[in-house]
């Protein structure tokens, strides 16, 4: 990275921090938190698709699974906020290790199919298991207090806590991508047989990435459960896995902030459309956008902007 690039990146970061801090003064905090949760989810997914070259079609299992575990930990076990989030994240990590271990034996579309199949298995477990509340889901999950003192029933307070969680997750993704491990990930994505011939155990590399990604997806789901005080079948449904693919592709796969932008666009569209006359057609509109994206701007919003900037200099 050149000095100018590094400086520009610093400016961008500062602007983002200011926007993040001031946003709840202008926009409804719950809406912002929803964007942050999905943005983190999409970043986790992008770590796999964009930076490892693995298309997981079962990430809802980690997102929704973590939401259930956190919901259960907070409402039934009565754990404090932090431990509740941690429990959900850990559960997603363990699920990620198992699903990943089974799925990485296959490549390409077969990998995607195995993740989808295992995620459906988890979906039906969630439908039947007593602690998930079946069709009703878990409702009224208590938000509690962060660090024992910050009252999270206040939306603005909770927003800042969620902002911190998001920043930590986003920071981890940034670190992973720009680390020695990130270099190996890139090599595996670019040319797996060559990476093997250089002595890399690429299955283990991919599994590590898969586990980190599912843990972060879990963190996003756990946080979402606290924000909405709800964990439901929607969170583990394969629609959710599809939605995160859409967010990532729309924002720009393989770019750092693409998934954040994509999540923002999709969540905003869902919220605006569902209160208007197009209420029943939200999936149709999103589907249309997806088609246009794939046909006309394949690099996604951020990817296209990046390409434009590169061209004009």
């Amino acid at each position: 990275m050149t000095k100018i690039q590094a400086r520009n990146r610093l400016y961008l970061l500062l602007v983002a921090i200011v926007i993040g801090l001031l946003a709840p003064l202008v926009v409804y905090p719950v809406f912002l938190m929803k964007i942050l949760c999905f943005a983190l989810f999409a970043c986790a997914f992008n770590l796999l698709l964009g930076f490892t070259g693995l298309l997981s079609f079962g990430h809802a299992a980690f997102f929704g699974g973590a939401a259930y575990v956190t919901g259960h930990a907070l409402s039934v076990w009565g754990l404090p906020f932090e431990l509740g989030i941690l429990a959900g994240t850990l559960a997603a990590t363990v699920m990620g290790a198992i699903v990943g271990k089974l799925a990485i034996r296959r490549q390409g579309i077969y990998f995607a199919m195995v993740t989808l199949a295992l995620a459906q298995l988890i979906y039906f477990l969630c439908l039947q298991a007593p602690f998930t509340g079946g069709e009703n889901g878990q409702q009224g999950i208590p938000r509690g207090f962060a660090l024992g003192i910050l009252d999270l029933s206040n939306n603005t307070t909770l927003y800042y806590v969620v902002l911190v969680i998001f920043s930590l997750g986003f920071g981890l993704v940034y670190r992973v991508i720009n680390s020695p491990f990130g270099q190996v990930l890139k090599a595996v994505r670019e040319n797996e047989p060559r990476a093997i011939s250089l002595g890399y155990d690429t299955d283990r590399v991919k599994l590590t990435a898969f586990i980190v990604s599912s843990a972060l997806a879990g963190l996003a789901g756990a946080t979402k459960a606290v924000v909405f005080q709800l964990a439901s079948l929607t969170d583990v449904h394969w629609h959710m896995s599809g939605e995160v693919v859409l967010m990532t592709l729309l924002g720009g796969v393989g770019t750092l902030i693409g998934p954040v932008v994509g999540a923002g666009v999709v969540v905003t569209l869902q919220n605006t459309l569902s209160s208007g006359p197009l209420n029943a057609y939200v999936p149709v509109v999103l589907g249309g956008i997806f088609v246009v994206c794939v046909l006309a701007f394949r690099r996604g919003i951020v990817g296209e902007i990046k390409a434009l900037i590169k061209q004009s200099f």
């Binding site: 720009n178 680390s179 020695p180 491990f181 270099q183 190996v184 250089l198 002595g199 890399y200």
Partner: peptide, 15 residues
Amino acid sequence: LQRATGSAYHFWKSA
């Protein structure tokens, strides 16, 4: 060259 250094899984370090 990196493989022999054993840093293949160091995801917490800067590149």
